[in-house]
Design a protein around this nucleic acid. Structure first.
Lengths: 247, 247
DNA sequence: TATCATTTATGACTAAAGTCAGTTTATGGG
DNA sequence: CCCATAAACTGACTTTAGTCATAAATGATA
């Protein structure tokens, strides 16, 4: 998870069915046959059933049997579409997460200070997670380690969108001269997200009131923006050095 | 998880046995009776057995039956000491983690640049996780959401040590004038750790070669140290503001 | 349409985490 | 020393995720 941009291809290929040899590649707009349509429709039913049950009963309290029953399929069938219950959880919520983030980015206040822009985006995500804390906890736990290539790909897509969005904001502020141009926007984005993410985990863990969490998050982001180094301090140069101090 | 310093007490009290009423409070150094000693010894056996099996067979591949058998206790007994298999995982590794961190802090190069000091500490943690990537993955996954008050307390202790250690380093550099004194060292520590932690997760997820991971981590930390803001930019003031720009 | 290969679906079954009613062991007082 | 009570232990049992041999459905071909 939280992969950096340059990633090598996954080993786990998604094996395509072999049947339709001649049809597909002849350039004709092949609309999916009954088989494919059935599959898609079934997948939708599964995700829908799971989404509903997770939302009402909670993740741990929902059994795969219930989901299968609600989706009107056999127990075994469920596991043709999701490798595990946890896999299903990520399947269900990846889209919502992405949409929430995209919606947040779309409404970023244009001329505002960077920290305000960030807090706007993170604030919308926080509001999303606040709607069902228990579920978010379960989701973030699963996201930590993903087992199937498909879900890893999903997460990569999500993270690219997020990092890309934040990086764009950083780059924009670099252009206006607010920000120094030395910092790689993508890495900066990953830093800022990391700060948000661990704060979020802490909050979801309970114990901290939301207002305090928000206030501290803001303070932390400000620190990352301002930096720790005293102004005018000679940078420790880009490369490796052990203990020596030049000048 | 990753709780900030000021936390309210947990709701889940650890209920103490009621039997020894008069004995304990009379000020005399009460050495533990057979009951307590048995319990401690059994706990040690359980943790030892689990540690060994997790290390050799892996977390998922180890059954609670095996652990119980190796610890020479009944299946049910295991769950008197750990609420779940996952709970046991955290029980087993919290000490190692803390010790690794403390050992790393003890050997921090004294006069070195801050980024080098940080990389020393994080490098030792990374080396620790590298010894068993699979296990670390499982561990970090569980750490994300902790169910029992005991484990939450354990994690709080761990995080306090880590944040405290890093914060001390930050404070030291503030004292020498390397770092501006405006930043709260504790919040800065949390930022820096967050950057490390998410990078670590990315690396443990596979796909990224260790060298690249280390290089990027260093670059990210440098960004957090230097900050994003252009030197001499008027700070957006500490308080809330929407879109207005002063000056 | 009939045939055959391939994909998809199914639910009885397996395995393993976790529970609990009943048993054993420690403790402190008489 | 013996009893009463609380604590600790136990393994048969329950529950549920996930498997797999078998069956049904689909699509290509003639």
């Amino acid at each position: 998870m939280f992969c950096t941009d340059a990633m090598t291809r996954e080993g786990g290929e998604v094996v395509e069915p072999k049947l339709k040899k001649a049809r597909a590649n002849s350039g004709i707009s092949t609309r999916p046959g009954r088989r494919e349509r059935n599959k898609q429709e079934k997948r939708a039913r599964i995700v829908g059933a799971a989404r509903e049950l997770f939302g009402t009963k909670g993740f741990a309290e929902t059994t795969t049997q219930e989901i299968a029953e609600k989706a009107d399929i056999g127990t075994g069938t469920l596991f043709l579409y999701a490798k595990s219950k946890e896999d299903l959880l990520v399947m269900v919520f990846k889209d919502e997460m992405l949409e929430t983030f995209l919606a947040a980015f779309k409404k970023v206040p244009a001329g505002a200070p960077f920290a305000d822009q960030l807090m706007h985006v993170f604030g919308m995500m926080i509001a999303y997670h606040a709607k069902d804390v228990e579920l978010s906890r379960a989701l973030l736990k699963e996201i930590t380690v993903l087992r199937t290539p498909e879900r890893r790909q999903d997460l990569r897509t999500l993270m690219r969108a997020i990092y890309g969005g934040i990086a764009d904001l950083v780059a924009a502020h670099q252009k206006t001269g607010n920000f120094r141009s030395g910092a790689n926007p993508l890495l900066a984005a990953e830093n800022l997200f990391a700060v948000y993410y661990l704060s979020l985990l802490g909050w979801l863990g309970g114990q901290i009131p939301k207002q305090k969490f928000i206030r501290e998050l803001r303070a932390k982001l400000d620190i990352t923006i301002e930096g720790l180094a005293a102004p005018g301090t000679p940078k420790p140069a880009a490369s490796k050095q052990k203990t020596s101090r030049k000048s």
